[in-house]
Design a protein around this nucleic acid. Structure first.
Lengths: 334, 334
DNA sequence: GCACACCTCGGAAACGTTTCCCAGCATCCC
DNA sequence: GGGATGCTGGGAAACGTTTCCGAGGTGTGC
């Protein structure tokens, strides 16, 4: 930790025998004199100069940083997004800041507020719940913001959506087609955006198939494995006639598969199972589990691209992109 | 994107009728005059002032940011680390920058070099392979660095290690104790740090159990599911007497479990399986899979704590912490 | 040969903070 | 009551860049 003095542009200028303005110009390609450029570069090498990001940011008013805020990066869907967002941004020189807010709406708002500190040029936000205060904060963001997730139509912000309502519906229709008639649903909390949408989709699916919705066949877990397992055990004990379970995400569905196994029910023979998000968990489970992909990776990529356009100065009206879901059918529901 | 003028400390000073020095002091708690503080705060509220992070960084010479660089955040072990590093840093006000280098040594070196741009106060690095150039770059880092992973002893950098050699050995001993005699091993690439260590541990384990190492029972995959599956299929076809498989990580082991199932071999009846890293995959697989935890979360937390100490100005000699492995026994090896 | 345009480069002003330094004032002690 | 002491708050410098502006030099056209 020997605090060696970091060389500045002034030292470079002195060594090269030119002014600091010339150094700056030479380094930023704003000069045509080849000799000058050569001398500056030589001096840069000699003193080991590296420009200070911070000073540049102060002057140029942009930081080369973008933040991504979501509930928990441990969630596979968000993980997939990060994996696409990072390279997309990186390609054009942006760094990625991660905010795992831990499902704390207060924290999300904090992130939004902290944008005025100007430490990032833009934000990609994945709110789990959208409150009035979110909407308020999003009306006048200090920097461009792209929201992944459902948003009221009048919020003037680029918005990338999954259609998990349609996704849930597709799953139900598929299960029906495969022969299921008593299709249960283990949802996440109803006050979350995805929980609500999937619930609606489930009901729409039932109706489309001519099945009568039965609230007793709906359970609520917390998007986690244990919740799914517990709910499924409960469900199947009380309603042994259930012949299919849709989980609001793969973790829930995996939990359900475990519960079924513990109850001695065969998947898919006795009960079919479908999950959502199509995470690696689904493909590697046994039996491999059908799952509705909500295009997390695509949503991440698209969000990053939208943001980059804004950062490039695009002032066109906010865009709204919806990524269609797709169902991957595997053994668990055949 | 109406570029409203962001209020600066000067505006606050004007509104409060004091000097900018007083505003700064009031905001940073370096004044005792309650009246002054109140007036400044009122002015801050009135004009909606938020300090510019960038200007502060330039002046104070620290950014409140820390970078974490690893191969791929999709890897569950790194993910666990991030999940612990972020809150630990956040608690004391640091933001986390993510660098997923994609196993590109060049990129890792780039991150190391870019540290002199001073956009972060510190770095936590997880190199997959450690080259001479890594070591060279680590000798004079521009900011404090903590390395998670094996490092030559003479590199003067805080270092947090897993003991995956001992971990692999524990797994072998456990399998032997459970009755296995032909224990196969599907490793990652030998030229990676963990690949090498686990290989050594596997052999140590065999010797400790009095089993004769047989190179035919070793396969190499790429730490991925498909690699594990393919290797296991191959292995079991050529050596049907194999009665246990150790995977160098959970993905490999999961792949092996699938291959076994496809070959009609029962787990654990015919073949026992143990994975490594103890990711959620292990706990949610069927049958639940034994796995050696290498303490990823702990390593992340410890690395963050070490770094924070350095950022606090601790100048003591570099520390080396080794996190002991622990084996979680589940059905797959009972 | 001179006026003019053009280009190159240096000086200096910003960007928005923190902090050093010092003047002014009140307090205290002898 | 006067000088030393301590505290408070203002002015200004500094952090390390980019960029505006203008001076000087060079080339061109008449």
């Amino acid at each position: 930790m020997t605090q060696r003095h970091r060389p500045t542009i002034h030292e470079v200028a002195k060594v090269a025998g030119v002014s600091i303005s010339s150094v700056s110009r030479a380094l930023n390609g704003n000069t045509s004199n080849a000799d000058m450029v050569a001398r500056v570069n030589a001096a840069v090498q000699e003193v080991g100069y590296v420009p200070s990001m911070v000073a540049q940011s102060l002057k140029t008013r942009h930081t080369g940083q973008v933040a991504f805020a979501m509930e928990d990066i441990g969630n596979a869907a968000y993980l997939e997004m990060v994996r696409r967002i990072q390279p997309t941004l990186r390609e054009v020189g942006y760094r990625l800041l991660l905010h795992s807010t831990g499902a704390d709406a207060e924290d999300e708002l904090g992130v939004l507020a902290s944008l005025s500190q100007n430490y990032v040029d833009g934000l990609i936000l994945c709110p789990l719940r959208v409150t009035g205060r979110h909407v308020e904060a999003l009306r006048h963001p200090a920097v461009p913001v792209v929201v992944i997730g459902l948003l009221p139509d009048d919020v003037p912000v680029d918005n990338v959506r999954a259609d998990s309502r349609v996704g849930a519906r597709m799953a139900v229709e598929h299960l029906h087609e495969a022969g299921a008639r008593r299709i249960a649903f283990i949802d996440g909390p109803l006050d979350t955006v995805p929980g609500r949408a999937r619930h609606d989709g489930y009901r729409m699916g039932l109706e489309a198939c001519g099945l009568k919705p039965d609230d007793h066949l709906i359970r609520f877990a917390d998007f986690q494995f244990e919740g799914g397992r517990h709910s499924a055990r409960d469900l199947l004990t009380q309603h042994p006639d259930v012949d299919a379970v849709l989980g609001a995400n793969d973790l829930i569905a995996m939990g359900a598969m475990h519960a079924l196994r513990e109850l001695g029910r065969h998947v898919p023979g006795d009960v079919r199972v479908v999950g959502m998000d199509d995470t690696p968990l689904a493909a590697t489970s046994f039996p491999p589990m059908s799952s509705v992909s909500l295009g997390s990776a695509d949503r991440g990529r698209i969000a990053a691209e939208l943001l980059l356009r804004r950062l490039d100065g695009d002032g066109s009206p906010p865009e709204r992109v919806t990524v269609p879901p797709s169902l991957t059918i595997r053994e668990s529901s055949r």
